Simulated assay, not measured.
Amino acid sequence: MSTQEDPRHASRADLDDDFVARAVFTEPSAAERTRPFPVLPPPPPRLDVRRRWYRRPVPLVLLVALALALVAAAWRPWDVPTGPPDHLVLIIAVPDGADVHPDFVDAVAHEAELSTLWLETQTGRAVRGDLSSPRVVTLSMTAEELRGGTVRAYERIMADLDLRDDAFGVVVSPLRTETTWSGQQTCGRGGRAGVVLFLGNCNHTPSTTSAWGSPLSRTITHEILHGMGAVADCAPHGTSDGHVDDDRADVMYQGADRVDPATTPLALDAGRDDYYGHNNIGCPDIVQSPLWVD
């Protein structure tokens, strides 16, 4: 059996001789040894993924616009209604520095209840809103500051109350705005937001024992109907100032010769031909007022 040397046991010198014999080694020159390393250009800037979205104005504007659009689409305004008033609120407006007695509050509530009950007997419909619990509000103005005419006083009081758009204010105030007793005394002033009754102008004194037809209950009714839209200029018996002239017993009749409710019953649109339940095409009818309960 022939023997052969195992290559694994070959010496390191035998394995390296051939490689060393064919190798070529070159030493760097002195100039090459002193040559500086080349300066490489800086790498291109990398996208900074750490930059936040809020540092970019255009995406921020788009995001804000989208958020506002979503809010506008989902928002349902519950405190800023856009339609006409649809319920009555009873308010007692007290000038700054004045007090109101609890009996006065109860008496005003009683007079307002007489008014709404009479309207219900005349129409078979109730008005929308609870007038049995008046809200007492102290104004930011004194009685002296509100003196000088009902138009100015009305505007200042309604601005001070700042009622919701869907509320029609029936505002009762002990104020006297007139500066003289001569001439016609304006008991109430109205507008889209509500009516203000100036008790001091007409010496209306509320009472808890009064009956329908009392000066204050009649005035409250008269002004509520004004708030509903009575009487339009196109009414056959309209006077172009919100009243009628065909029946002295009509609650919307205005004049010194109107009937005494104690002896003659009052009527709501006598003949039903001017402002409630009429057939005048194109002429407003308060039967459509949202202040009625359907």
Results as ranks from 00 to 15, higher is better:
Asp18Cys: 01
Phe37Arg: 11
Val80Ser: 14
Val231Phe: 08
His243Glu: 01
Ala109Asn: 01
Leu15Gln: 12
Ala73Leu: 14
Val80Pro: 00
Ala256Asp: 05
Gln184Ser: 07
Ser240Gly: 12
Pro261Gln: 06
Asp106Ala: 15
Trp78Thr: 15
Asp165Arg: 15
Leu291Ala: 10
Leu117Arg: 15
Pro134Val: 12
Glu223His: 06
Glu155Arg: 14
Trp118Ser: 09
Ser2Tyr: 03
Val231Pro: 04
Pro102Ala: 12
Val71Ser: 01
Leu216Gly: 02
Pro36Tyr: 03
Leu114Trp: 08
Arg8Pro: 00
Val137Leu: 07
Asp246Ser: 13
Gly183Ile: 13
Met141Lys: 15
Ala23Lys: 10
Asn201Thr: 07
Phe25His: 12
Ala21Arg: 14
Arg147Phe: 01
Leu63Asp: 03
Gly97Val: 11
Val61Thr: 11
Thr186His: 00
Val259Leu: 05
Val293Ala: 14
Gly148Pro: 06
Ala31Asp: 14
Asp241Asn: 03
Ala211Trp: 10
Gln4Cys: 09
Asp99Ala: 12
Val71Gly: 04
Thr239Arg: 13
Ala153Leu: 03
Met141Cys: 07
Val151Met: 06
Cys234Ala: 08
Thr221Lys: 01
Arg189Asp: 00
Leu68Thr: 13
Gly271His: 12
Ala65Thr: 11
Glu223Asp: 05
His204Asn: 04
Asp233Lys: 13
Thr209Ser: 08
Pro57Cys: 11
Asn201Arg: 10
Asp16Tyr: 04
Ser214Gln: 08
Gly229Asn: 10
Asp162Pro: 01
Leu47Ala: 11
Gly282Tyr: 06
Arg128Gly: 05
Val231Glu: 07
Cys234Asp: 08
Gly83Ala: 15
Arg152Gly: 09
Ala13Gln: 10
Thr177Trp: 09
Glu27Met: 14
Arg55Ile: 02
His110Leu: 06
Asp233Trp: 13
Val127Cys: 08
Met158Pro: 00
Ala67Asn: 09
Val71Leu: 06
Asp106Trp: 01
Val127Leu: 15
Leu199Pro: 12
Leu197Ser: 03
Asn279Phe: 07
Met158Asp: 01
Thr186Trp: 04
Pro57Gln: 10
His243Pro: 00
Pro45Leu: 13
Pro284Gln: 04
Leu66Thr: 11
Ala73Gly: 13
Val251Met: 05
Val172Met: 04
His101Gln: 06
Pro59Tyr: 14
Ala159Phe: 05
Gly149Ile: 02
Arg22Leu: 09
Asp257His: 13
Ser207Cys: 11
Gly282Cys: 06
Leu139Asn: 14
Thr34Glu: 14
